[in-house]
Design a binder for these strands. Structure first.
Lengths: 221, 221
DNA sequence: CCAAAAGTGTTGTTTATACACCCATGT
DNA sequence: ACATGGGTGTATAAACAACACTTTTGG
Protein backbone atom coordinates (compact mmCIF):
# COMPACT_ATOMS: atom_id res chain seq x y z
CA UNK A 1 0.00 0.00 0.00
CA UNK A 2 1.27 3.39 -1.00
CA UNK A 3 1.44 5.51 2.18
CA UNK A 4 3.59 3.37 4.41
CA UNK A 5 5.25 0.80 2.16
CA UNK A 6 5.11 -2.58 3.74
CA UNK A 7 7.32 -5.34 2.42
CA UNK A 8 5.26 -7.39 0.02
CA UNK A 9 5.12 -11.11 -0.45
CA UNK A 10 5.00 -12.65 -3.89
CA UNK A 11 1.61 -14.03 -4.80
CA UNK A 12 0.96 -16.96 -7.08
CA UNK A 13 -1.98 -19.09 -8.08
CA UNK A 14 -1.64 -22.84 -8.24
CA UNK A 15 -4.24 -25.10 -9.73
CA UNK A 16 -5.13 -28.67 -8.96
CA UNK A 17 -6.53 -29.88 -12.26
CA UNK A 18 -8.47 -33.11 -12.03
CA UNK A 19 -9.78 -35.31 -14.74
CA UNK A 20 -10.83 -38.92 -15.12
CA UNK A 21 -8.75 -41.00 -17.48
CA UNK A 22 -8.43 -44.76 -17.71
CA UNK A 23 -11.03 -45.08 -14.96
CA UNK A 24 -8.76 -43.21 -12.55
CA UNK A 25 -8.85 -39.82 -10.98
CA UNK A 26 -5.84 -38.04 -12.40
CA UNK A 27 -4.12 -34.75 -11.75
CA UNK A 28 -2.00 -32.61 -14.06
CA UNK A 29 1.57 -31.93 -12.94
CA UNK A 30 4.42 -29.95 -14.44
CA UNK A 31 8.06 -30.85 -14.20
CA UNK A 32 10.04 -27.97 -12.81
CA UNK A 33 12.74 -26.70 -15.14
CA UNK A 34 14.62 -24.58 -12.62
CA UNK A 35 15.56 -24.52 -8.95
CA UNK A 36 14.30 -24.82 -6.36
CA UNK A 37 12.98 -28.35 -6.71
CA UNK A 38 14.38 -28.57 -10.23
CA UNK A 39 13.27 -31.79 -11.85
CA UNK A 40 10.53 -32.33 -9.30
CA UNK A 41 6.89 -32.31 -10.21
CA UNK A 42 4.64 -29.47 -9.16
CA UNK A 43 1.16 -28.11 -9.62
CA UNK A 44 0.73 -25.77 -12.56
CA UNK A 45 0.61 -22.17 -11.51
CA UNK A 46 2.14 -18.79 -11.89
CA UNK A 47 2.44 -15.29 -10.62
CA UNK A 48 -0.57 -13.12 -10.24
CA UNK A 49 -0.76 -10.48 -12.92
CA UNK A 50 -1.42 -7.17 -11.20
CA UNK A 51 -4.24 -6.22 -13.54
CA UNK A 52 -6.02 -9.52 -13.29
CA UNK A 53 -8.54 -10.94 -10.88
CA UNK A 54 -7.37 -14.09 -9.09
CA UNK A 55 -9.95 -16.30 -10.76
CA UNK A 56 -9.26 -14.79 -14.16
CA UNK A 57 -5.57 -15.43 -13.65
CA UNK A 58 -6.21 -19.01 -12.68
CA UNK A 59 -8.37 -19.49 -15.77
CA UNK A 60 -5.60 -18.08 -17.90
CA UNK A 61 -3.04 -20.44 -16.36
CA UNK A 62 -5.43 -23.27 -16.89
CA UNK A 63 -5.87 -22.45 -20.53
CA UNK A 64 -2.11 -22.09 -21.00
CA UNK A 65 -1.53 -25.52 -19.55
CA UNK A 66 -4.43 -27.46 -20.95
CA UNK A 67 -5.86 -25.42 -23.79
CA UNK A 68 -9.33 -25.64 -22.32
CA UNK A 69 -11.72 -22.85 -21.39
CA UNK A 70 -15.06 -22.80 -19.68
CA UNK A 71 -14.24 -25.44 -17.15
CA UNK A 72 -15.24 -25.69 -13.55
CA UNK A 73 -12.90 -23.72 -11.32
CA UNK A 74 -13.22 -23.07 -7.63
CA UNK A 75 -11.01 -21.26 -5.16
CA UNK A 76 -9.69 -23.81 -2.70
CA UNK A 77 -7.56 -22.22 -0.01
CA UNK A 78 -4.70 -19.78 0.39
CA UNK A 79 -1.41 -21.20 1.57
CA UNK A 80 0.95 -18.78 3.18
CA UNK A 81 3.36 -20.55 5.45
CA UNK A 82 6.50 -18.37 5.48
CA UNK A 83 8.70 -21.39 4.84
CA UNK A 84 6.77 -22.89 1.98
CA UNK A 85 9.15 -21.49 -0.63
CA UNK A 86 12.88 -21.43 0.07
CA UNK A 87 13.34 -18.32 -2.07
CA UNK A 88 11.31 -16.07 0.18
CA UNK A 89 7.77 -15.25 1.10
CA UNK A 90 5.39 -16.60 -1.49
CA UNK A 91 1.71 -16.84 -0.83
CA UNK A 92 -0.32 -19.01 -3.15
CA UNK A 93 -4.01 -18.88 -3.79
CA UNK A 94 -4.88 -22.44 -4.72
CA UNK A 95 -7.74 -23.43 -7.03
CA UNK A 96 -9.15 -26.66 -8.17
CA UNK A 97 -10.50 -27.40 -11.61
CA UNK A 98 -12.42 -30.26 -13.18
CA UNK A 99 -11.97 -31.11 -16.83
CA UNK A 100 -14.03 -33.64 -18.76
CA UNK A 101 -11.84 -36.43 -20.06
CA UNK A 102 -12.82 -35.81 -23.67
CA UNK A 103 -11.36 -32.32 -23.63
CA UNK A 104 -7.90 -33.08 -22.31
CA UNK A 105 -6.30 -34.13 -25.59
CA UNK A 106 -5.83 -30.49 -26.54
CA UNK A 107 -3.36 -30.10 -23.74
CA UNK A 108 0.42 -29.60 -23.57
CA UNK A 109 0.52 -28.17 -27.06
CA UNK A 110 0.98 -24.67 -25.74
CA UNK A 111 3.65 -25.23 -23.21
CA UNK A 112 7.26 -26.29 -23.57
CA UNK A 113 7.66 -27.78 -20.11
CA UNK A 114 6.95 -31.43 -19.49
CA UNK A 115 3.38 -31.80 -18.33
CA UNK A 116 1.83 -35.13 -17.42
CA UNK A 117 -1.28 -36.63 -15.95
CA UNK A 118 -0.75 -38.77 -12.85
CA UNK A 119 -3.18 -41.12 -11.24
CA UNK A 120 -4.04 -39.62 -7.87
CA UNK A 121 -2.72 -42.65 -6.04
CA UNK A 122 0.51 -42.60 -7.95
CA UNK A 123 1.68 -39.03 -7.59
CA UNK A 124 5.45 -38.55 -7.14
CA UNK A 125 7.02 -36.36 -4.44
CA UNK A 126 5.95 -32.80 -5.13
CA UNK A 127 7.74 -29.48 -4.87
CA UNK A 128 6.96 -26.94 -2.14
CA UNK A 129 3.84 -27.77 -0.12
CA UNK A 130 2.03 -28.99 -3.19
CA UNK A 131 1.29 -32.34 -1.63
CA UNK A 132 -0.74 -30.59 1.06
CA UNK A 133 -2.56 -28.55 -1.57
CA UNK A 134 -3.34 -31.63 -3.58
CA UNK A 135 -4.60 -33.46 -0.51
CA UNK A 136 -6.85 -30.59 0.39
CA UNK A 137 -8.25 -30.40 -3.13
CA UNK A 138 -8.98 -34.08 -3.16
CA UNK A 139 -10.69 -33.91 0.22
CA UNK A 140 -12.82 -31.03 -1.01
CA UNK A 141 -13.79 -32.90 -4.15
CA UNK A 142 -14.75 -36.00 -2.21
CA UNK A 143 -16.75 -33.97 0.29
CA UNK A 144 -18.62 -32.19 -2.46
CA UNK A 145 -19.70 -35.41 -4.11
CA UNK A 146 -22.20 -35.81 -1.32
CA UNK A 147 -23.96 -32.51 -1.50
CA UNK A 148 -23.40 -31.00 -4.92
CA UNK A 149 -23.26 -31.81 -8.58
CA UNK A 150 -19.60 -30.80 -9.07
CA UNK A 151 -18.67 -34.23 -10.32
CA UNK A 152 -21.03 -33.76 -13.26
CA UNK A 153 -18.45 -31.29 -14.54
CA UNK A 154 -16.24 -34.25 -15.40
CA UNK A 155 -18.79 -35.49 -17.93
CA UNK A 156 -18.72 -35.00 -21.69
CA UNK A 157 -21.66 -33.22 -23.26
CA UNK A 158 -23.56 -36.47 -23.84
CA UNK A 159 -23.24 -39.21 -21.29
CA UNK A 160 -24.94 -42.26 -19.89
CA UNK A 161 -25.93 -42.67 -16.27
CA UNK A 162 -23.39 -45.45 -16.02
CA UNK A 163 -20.68 -43.01 -17.12
CA UNK A 164 -21.67 -40.77 -14.27
CA UNK A 165 -21.81 -43.57 -11.77
CA UNK A 166 -18.34 -44.67 -12.81
CA UNK A 167 -17.05 -41.18 -12.03
CA UNK A 168 -18.48 -41.35 -8.55
CA UNK A 169 -17.13 -44.81 -7.96
CA UNK A 170 -13.71 -43.83 -9.24
CA UNK A 171 -13.42 -40.79 -7.00
CA UNK A 172 -14.85 -42.55 -3.96
CA UNK A 173 -12.98 -45.75 -4.62
CA UNK A 174 -15.99 -47.90 -3.87
CA UNK A 175 -18.97 -49.27 -5.78
CA UNK A 176 -22.43 -47.80 -5.48
CA UNK A 177 -25.85 -49.30 -5.92
CA UNK A 178 -27.03 -48.80 -9.47
CA UNK A 179 -30.74 -48.32 -8.79
CA UNK A 180 -30.26 -45.98 -5.88
CA UNK A 181 -27.74 -43.95 -7.80
CA UNK A 182 -30.04 -43.54 -10.76
CA UNK A 183 -32.97 -42.60 -8.59
CA UNK A 184 -30.81 -39.97 -6.90
CA UNK A 185 -29.61 -38.47 -10.17
CA UNK A 186 -33.11 -38.31 -11.59
CA UNK A 187 -34.44 -36.65 -8.46
CA UNK A 188 -31.95 -33.80 -8.83
CA UNK A 189 -33.65 -32.67 -11.99
CA UNK A 190 -30.45 -31.43 -13.59
CA UNK A 191 -30.13 -33.91 -16.44
CA UNK A 192 -32.46 -34.76 -19.30
CA UNK A 193 -32.74 -37.55 -21.83
CA UNK A 194 -31.66 -36.97 -25.39
CA UNK A 195 -33.12 -38.80 -28.34
CA UNK A 196 -29.91 -40.76 -28.83
CA UNK A 197 -28.51 -43.94 -27.46
CA UNK A 198 -25.00 -45.22 -27.38
CA UNK A 199 -24.22 -48.73 -28.59
CA UNK A 200 -21.08 -50.23 -27.17
CA UNK A 201 -20.51 -53.75 -28.33
CA UNK A 202 -22.81 -56.66 -27.73
CA UNK A 203 -25.17 -55.21 -25.19
CA UNK A 204 -28.21 -53.09 -24.90
CA UNK A 205 -27.56 -49.48 -26.05
CA UNK A 206 -27.61 -46.90 -23.27
CA UNK A 207 -29.72 -43.78 -23.16
CA UNK A 208 -27.66 -40.64 -23.59
CA UNK A 209 -28.34 -37.73 -21.29
CA UNK A 210 -27.24 -34.12 -21.25
CA UNK A 211 -27.20 -31.52 -18.52
CA UNK A 212 -30.03 -29.03 -18.52
CA UNK A 213 -27.61 -26.24 -17.63
CA UNK A 214 -24.15 -27.49 -18.55
CA UNK A 215 -22.01 -25.16 -16.45
CA UNK A 216 -24.23 -25.15 -13.42
CA UNK A 217 -23.28 -26.81 -10.15
CA UNK A 218 -26.10 -27.17 -7.71
CA UNK A 219 -25.94 -27.73 -3.98
CA UNK A 220 -28.31 -30.44 -2.91
CA UNK A 221 -29.86 -31.66 0.35
CA UNK B 1 10.25 -14.25 -6.35
CA UNK B 2 13.97 -13.58 -6.57
CA UNK B 3 15.05 -14.61 -10.09
CA UNK B 4 12.68 -12.68 -12.28
CA UNK B 5 11.14 -10.00 -10.09
CA UNK B 6 7.46 -9.78 -10.72
CA UNK B 7 5.54 -6.78 -9.46
CA UNK B 8 4.00 -7.73 -6.16
CA UNK B 9 0.59 -6.97 -4.80
CA UNK B 10 0.09 -5.92 -1.19
CA UNK B 11 -1.43 -8.61 0.95
CA UNK B 12 -3.65 -8.05 3.95
CA UNK B 13 -5.78 -10.16 6.22
CA UNK B 14 -9.24 -8.99 7.17
CA UNK B 15 -11.33 -10.63 9.84
CA UNK B 16 -15.06 -10.88 10.22
CA UNK B 17 -15.45 -11.16 13.98
CA UNK B 18 -18.85 -12.38 15.08
CA UNK B 19 -20.35 -12.48 18.51
CA UNK B 20 -23.81 -12.63 20.01
CA UNK B 21 -24.81 -9.63 22.12
CA UNK B 22 -28.27 -8.47 23.10
CA UNK B 23 -29.71 -11.52 21.38
CA UNK B 24 -28.32 -10.34 18.06
CA UNK B 25 -25.57 -11.54 15.80
CA UNK B 26 -23.04 -8.72 15.84
CA UNK B 27 -19.86 -7.95 13.96
CA UNK B 28 -16.88 -5.86 15.00
CA UNK B 29 -16.05 -2.88 12.76
CA UNK B 30 -13.34 -0.25 12.87
CA UNK B 31 -13.75 3.34 11.81
CA UNK B 32 -11.13 4.28 9.27
CA UNK B 33 -8.89 7.12 10.34
CA UNK B 34 -7.35 7.84 6.95
CA UNK B 35 -8.22 7.84 3.26
CA UNK B 36 -9.43 6.11 1.30
CA UNK B 37 -12.85 5.67 2.87
CA UNK B 38 -11.82 7.89 5.78
CA UNK B 39 -14.58 7.92 8.37
CA UNK B 40 -16.21 4.82 6.92
CA UNK B 41 -16.44 1.59 8.80
CA UNK B 42 -14.38 -1.40 7.80
CA UNK B 43 -13.45 -4.88 8.89
CA UNK B 44 -10.46 -5.08 11.18
CA UNK B 45 -7.35 -6.22 9.38
CA UNK B 46 -3.83 -5.40 8.49
CA UNK B 47 -0.84 -6.17 6.38
CA UNK B 48 0.70 -9.58 6.39
CA UNK B 49 3.93 -9.69 8.30
CA UNK B 50 6.48 -11.42 6.10
CA UNK B 51 7.65 -13.73 8.85
CA UNK B 52 4.20 -14.77 9.94
CA UNK B 53 1.80 -17.43 8.78
CA UNK B 54 -1.53 -16.07 7.51
CA UNK B 55 -3.50 -17.66 10.32
CA UNK B 56 -1.00 -16.50 12.92
CA UNK B 57 -1.23 -13.00 11.55
CA UNK B 58 -4.99 -13.07 11.68
CA UNK B 59 -4.85 -14.28 15.28
CA UNK B 60 -2.51 -11.44 16.13
CA UNK B 61 -4.85 -8.89 14.54
CA UNK B 62 -7.70 -10.43 16.40
CA UNK B 63 -5.94 -10.14 19.70
CA UNK B 64 -4.93 -6.57 18.97
CA UNK B 65 -8.53 -5.63 18.28
CA UNK B 66 -10.36 -7.63 20.88
CA UNK B 67 -7.81 -8.73 23.44
CA UNK B 68 -8.94 -12.32 23.10
CA UNK B 69 -6.91 -15.40 22.30
CA UNK B 70 -7.82 -18.98 21.64
CA UNK B 71 -10.94 -18.24 19.68
CA UNK B 72 -12.35 -20.01 16.68
CA UNK B 73 -10.78 -18.73 13.48
CA UNK B 74 -11.28 -20.05 9.99
CA UNK B 75 -9.98 -18.95 6.62
CA UNK B 76 -12.91 -17.74 4.56
CA UNK B 77 -11.86 -16.69 1.08
CA UNK B 78 -9.26 -14.60 -0.69
CA UNK B 79 -10.49 -11.46 -2.40
CA UNK B 80 -8.30 -10.12 -5.15
CA UNK B 81 -10.31 -8.00 -7.52
CA UNK B 82 -7.81 -5.52 -8.97
CA UNK B 83 -10.18 -2.63 -8.27
CA UNK B 84 -11.05 -3.45 -4.70
CA UNK B 85 -8.62 -0.88 -3.29
CA UNK B 86 -8.25 2.49 -5.06
CA UNK B 87 -4.63 2.76 -3.93
CA UNK B 88 -3.44 -0.20 -5.97
CA UNK B 89 -3.43 -3.93 -6.00
CA UNK B 90 -4.28 -5.27 -2.60
CA UNK B 91 -5.22 -8.89 -2.11
CA UNK B 92 -6.90 -9.77 1.15
CA UNK B 93 -7.12 -13.14 2.78
CA UNK B 94 -10.35 -12.99 4.74
CA UNK B 95 -11.02 -14.94 7.93
CA UNK B 96 -13.96 -15.30 10.16
CA UNK B 97 -13.85 -15.61 13.92
CA UNK B 98 -16.38 -16.44 16.61
CA UNK B 99 -16.06 -14.96 20.08
CA UNK B 100 -18.20 -15.91 23.07
CA UNK B 101 -20.17 -12.92 24.28
CA UNK B 102 -18.69 -13.12 27.76
CA UNK B 103 -15.19 -12.50 26.51
CA UNK B 104 -15.80 -9.39 24.46
CA UNK B 105 -15.64 -6.87 27.30
CA UNK B 106 -11.84 -7.01 27.19
CA UNK B 107 -11.93 -5.42 23.77
CA UNK B 108 -10.90 -2.04 22.38
CA UNK B 109 -8.54 -1.42 25.27
CA UNK B 110 -5.54 -2.03 23.06
CA UNK B 111 -6.45 0.06 20.08
CA UNK B 112 -6.83 3.78 19.68
CA UNK B 113 -9.18 3.66 16.71
CA UNK B 114 -12.91 3.65 17.19
CA UNK B 115 -14.12 0.09 17.22
CA UNK B 116 -17.76 -0.89 17.61
CA UNK B 117 -20.04 -3.86 17.50
CA UNK B 118 -22.88 -3.65 14.98
CA UNK B 119 -25.93 -5.83 14.73
CA UNK B 120 -25.60 -7.76 11.52
CA UNK B 121 -28.80 -6.30 10.14
CA UNK B 122 -27.75 -2.79 10.99
CA UNK B 123 -24.30 -2.54 9.45
CA UNK B 124 -23.44 0.82 7.84
CA UNK B 125 -21.92 1.20 4.38
CA UNK B 126 -18.50 -0.41 4.46
CA UNK B 127 -15.18 0.51 2.93
CA UNK B 128 -13.67 -1.41 0.01
CA UNK B 129 -15.49 -4.68 -0.78
CA UNK B 130 -16.00 -5.41 2.89
CA UNK B 131 -19.74 -5.76 2.45
CA UNK B 132 -19.13 -8.70 0.12
CA UNK B 133 -16.70 -10.23 2.59
CA UNK B 134 -19.17 -9.84 5.43
CA UNK B 135 -21.96 -11.39 3.39
CA UNK B 136 -19.80 -14.34 2.50
CA UNK B 137 -18.81 -14.86 6.12
CA UNK B 138 -22.40 -14.77 7.24
CA UNK B 139 -23.45 -17.22 4.55
CA UNK B 140 -20.67 -19.58 5.62
CA UNK B 141 -21.67 -19.34 9.25
CA UNK B 142 -25.31 -20.05 8.47
CA UNK B 143 -24.37 -22.97 6.24
CA UNK B 144 -22.16 -24.48 8.91
CA UNK B 145 -24.90 -24.42 11.51
CA UNK B 146 -26.43 -27.36 9.73
CA UNK B 147 -23.52 -29.70 9.63
CA UNK B 148 -21.03 -28.67 12.28
CA UNK B 149 -20.72 -27.50 15.84
CA UNK B 150 -19.11 -24.14 15.00
CA UNK B 151 -21.86 -22.21 16.69
CA UNK B 152 -20.91 -23.85 19.99
CA UNK B 153 -17.84 -21.62 19.85
CA UNK B 154 -20.08 -18.68 20.71
CA UNK B 155 -20.89 -20.22 24.10
CA UNK B 156 -19.34 -19.36 27.45
CA UNK B 157 -17.64 -22.15 29.35
CA UNK B 158 -20.84 -23.11 31.19
CA UNK B 159 -24.12 -22.82 29.38
CA UNK B 160 -27.66 -24.11 29.27
CA UNK B 161 -29.21 -25.84 26.30
CA UNK B 162 -31.55 -22.88 25.99
CA UNK B 163 -28.54 -20.59 25.65
CA UNK B 164 -27.35 -22.69 22.78
CA UNK B 165 -30.75 -22.81 21.16
CA UNK B 166 -31.00 -19.04 21.35
CA UNK B 167 -27.72 -18.76 19.46
CA UNK B 168 -29.08 -20.92 16.68
CA UNK B 169 -32.33 -19.01 16.55
CA UNK B 170 -30.54 -15.69 16.53
CA UNK B 171 -28.27 -16.61 13.64
CA UNK B 172 -31.01 -18.31 11.67
CA UNK B 173 -33.57 -15.69 12.47
CA UNK B 174 -36.27 -18.25 13.15
CA UNK B 175 -37.44 -20.30 16.11
CA UNK B 176 -36.61 -23.98 16.48
CA UNK B 177 -38.43 -26.80 18.20
CA UNK B 178 -37.12 -27.19 21.72
CA UNK B 179 -37.41 -30.94 22.03
CA UNK B 180 -35.93 -31.72 18.65
CA UNK B 181 -33.09 -29.31 19.23
CA UNK B 182 -32.20 -30.86 22.57
CA UNK B 183 -32.35 -34.36 21.17
CA UNK B 184 -30.01 -33.29 18.38
CA UNK B 185 -27.50 -31.69 20.72
CA UNK B 186 -27.46 -34.70 23.03
CA UNK B 187 -26.97 -37.06 20.11
CA UNK B 188 -23.79 -35.23 19.07
CA UNK B 189 -22.06 -36.32 22.21
CA UNK B 190 -19.97 -33.18 22.50
CA UNK B 191 -21.47 -31.65 25.64
CA UNK B 192 -21.80 -32.99 29.16
CA UNK B 193 -23.76 -32.06 32.24
CA UNK B 194 -22.05 -30.29 35.10
CA UNK B 195 -23.17 -30.59 38.69
CA UNK B 196 -24.44 -27.02 38.69
CA UNK B 197 -27.64 -25.36 37.74
CA UNK B 198 -28.37 -21.76 36.95
CA UNK B 199 -31.25 -19.96 38.65
CA UNK B 200 -32.59 -17.00 36.76
CA UNK B 201 -35.50 -15.38 38.52
CA UNK B 202 -38.75 -17.06 39.31
CA UNK B 203 -38.50 -20.19 37.24
CA UNK B 204 -37.02 -23.60 37.30
CA UNK B 205 -33.19 -23.55 37.37
CA UNK B 206 -31.52 -24.86 34.24
CA UNK B 207 -28.88 -27.52 34.05
CA UNK B 208 -25.47 -26.15 33.14
CA UNK B 209 -23.46 -27.97 30.50
CA UNK B 210 -19.90 -27.72 29.32
CA UNK B 211 -18.19 -28.89 26.16
CA UNK B 212 -16.24 -32.10 26.39
CA UNK B 213 -13.51 -30.62 24.19
CA UNK B 214 -13.91 -26.86 24.32
CA UNK B 215 -11.98 -25.84 21.22
CA UNK B 216 -13.18 -28.68 19.03
CA UNK B 217 -15.54 -28.20 16.13
CA UNK B 218 -16.99 -31.39 14.75
CA UNK B 219 -18.56 -32.00 11.39
CA UNK B 220 -21.76 -33.94 11.73
CA UNK B 221 -24.10 -35.96 9.47
C1' DC C 1 -51.09 -19.36 43.50
C1' DC C 2 -49.20 -17.31 39.49
C1' DA C 3 -45.72 -16.42 35.94
C1' DA C 4 -41.88 -18.04 33.51
C1' DA C 5 -38.66 -20.88 31.55
C1' DA C 6 -37.03 -25.97 32.07
C1' DG C 7 -37.70 -30.31 30.92
C1' DT C 8 -39.53 -34.52 28.61
C1' DG C 9 -41.89 -38.89 24.30
C1' DT C 10 -44.64 -40.35 20.77
C1' DT C 11 -46.37 -40.42 16.16
C1' DG C 12 -46.31 -39.58 11.26
C1' DT C 13 -43.54 -38.43 7.29
C1' DT C 14 -39.74 -38.34 4.57
C1' DT C 15 -35.38 -40.09 3.12
C1' DA C 16 -31.94 -43.56 2.58
C1' DT C 17 -30.68 -48.26 2.02
C1' DA C 18 -30.70 -53.02 0.58
C1' DC C 19 -31.65 -56.08 -2.86
C1' DA C 20 -32.63 -59.43 -8.02
C1' DC C 21 -34.36 -59.98 -12.27
C1' DC C 22 -35.53 -59.03 -17.28
C1' DC C 23 -34.00 -56.36 -21.61
C1' DA C 24 -31.69 -55.25 -25.89
C1' DT C 25 -28.00 -55.83 -28.47
C1' DG C 26 -23.58 -57.92 -31.01
C1' DT C 27 -21.07 -61.87 -31.69
C1' DA D 1 -27.83 -68.94 -27.77
C1' DC D 2 -25.05 -66.44 -24.86
C1' DA D 3 -22.45 -62.79 -22.87
C1' DT D 4 -22.58 -58.02 -21.63
C1' DG D 5 -23.92 -54.00 -19.62
C1' DG D 6 -28.75 -51.38 -19.49
C1' DG D 7 -32.65 -50.76 -17.14
C1' DT D 8 -36.34 -51.10 -13.43
C1' DG D 9 -39.49 -51.40 -8.09
C1' DT D 10 -40.39 -52.63 -3.49
C1' DA D 11 -39.74 -53.28 1.36
C1' DT D 12 -37.24 -52.01 5.55
C1' DA D 13 -34.81 -48.92 8.41
C1' DA D 14 -33.32 -44.54 9.82
C1' DA D 15 -33.74 -39.65 10.16
C1' DC D 16 -36.45 -35.79 10.65
C1' DA D 17 -40.58 -32.96 11.84
C1' DA D 18 -44.61 -31.90 14.35
C1' DC D 19 -46.68 -31.44 18.54
C1' DA D 20 -48.49 -30.36 24.49
C1' DC D 21 -48.10 -30.95 28.99
C1' DT D 22 -45.71 -31.24 33.72
C1' DT D 23 -41.94 -29.39 36.75
C1' DT D 24 -39.47 -26.16 39.46
C1' DT D 25 -38.56 -22.04 41.09
C1' DG D 26 -39.24 -16.77 42.74
C1' DG D 27 -42.24 -13.31 43.52
Amino acid sequence: MPETEYPKPSVTTDIVIFTIRDEQLQVLLIERGMPPFEGDWALPGGFVDLSEDLTTGALRELEEETGVRDVYLEQLYTFGNPDRDPRGRVITVAFFALIPSERIELKASTDARDARWFAIDNVPALAFDHRAILDKARARLVAKLNYSTVAFQLLPERFTLSDLQKIYETIRGEPMDKRNFRKWVQSLNVVEETAERRSAGRQRPAMLYRMKNPGEVVIVR
